[in-house]
Simulated assay, not measured.
Amino acid sequence: MYRRVDITEDAVRILDALKERHGDLMFHQSGGCCDGSSPMCLEKGDLLLNENDVWLGTVHGCEFFMSKDQFEYWKHTHLLVDITKGRGSSFSLEIPMGVRFVIKSRMFKPEELEDLQPIKHGEEFID
């Protein structure tokens, strides 16, 4: 089964430092523009999720969510959480460290599309 979202080793190091300071974390890929299109890393539970959010998987122990509408555009895309130098302007926890999480993406290959990890919408898994 192919994962919909993964994370680089550089991003894992930042995530480990954030976990040490903040505890359990989560990601939400917002659908805004500019900095609003970056994945936000938040303390688990700080963002209230609802029926408009879908679960795409877990990266380094952190659940990763995206809005349902945005997922419709990205459902054929593999997401890779990475880190880059520079300060974003969101509420994401890494911002004070002088770095920000970014998404690198690629289209799934045909064989991957046939065996993708299902998403979760509410309490229900969806292929």
Rank of each mutant, 00 (worst) to 15 (best):
S38C: 14
V99W: 09
F101N: 07
M26T: 07
G45P: 11
N52H: 09
S30G: 13
E111N: 11
I7E: 00
H76F: 04
D53Q: 05
K44A: 15
R21M: 02
H60V: 01
D53P: 01
E114K: 15
E20C: 03
L42D: 02
L48T: 08
Y73I: 08
C62R: 02
I83P: 15
R3D: 13
D16S: 06
F71K: 00
S37L: 10
K75L: 10
P96F: 02
M1R: 04
K120C: 14
L47A: 09
K75M: 08
C41F: 01
N52C: 10
E123Q: 09
E111R: 09
M107W: 04
D46M: 12
E112D: 06
S67P: 12
E112Q: 10
T8N: 11
M26H: 03
S105M: 09
F71R: 01
V102C: 08
E111L: 05
I126D: 00
K68E: 05
H60S: 10
I103K: 03
E114R: 13
A11D: 04
T84G: 14
V99Y: 15
V54P: 14
H76A: 12
I83M: 08
D35F: 03
S38T: 04
A17W: 10
C62Y: 04
Q29E: 02
E72D: 10
L79N: 05
I119H: 00
G31W: 04
G61D: 05
L56G: 00
F64L: 05
K104F: 14
F64Q: 00
D69G: 14
E112G: 03
Y73C: 10
G88L: 08
K75N: 11
C62T: 07
E124C: 06
E124H: 12
H76P: 01
L80V: 15
D127V: 02
F71I: 04
F108C: 03
P110F: 10
D53A: 12
E112S: 05
G32P: 09
M107D: 12
D69N: 06
S67Y: 11
N50K: 05
R100F: 09
L15S: 05
K104T: 11
N52Q: 09
S105P: 03
D53M: 06
C33M: 06
K85G: 07
S67A: 11
D10F: 06
V5M: 04
S105N: 15
F108V: 08
S92F: 08
K68V: 01
L47T: 07
E72N: 13
L48S: 03
G86N: 13
I95V: 13
V54C: 15
D69A: 10
D127W: 03
V81A: 07
S37I: 11
P96V: 00
G45H: 13
S38W: 07
S38V: 03
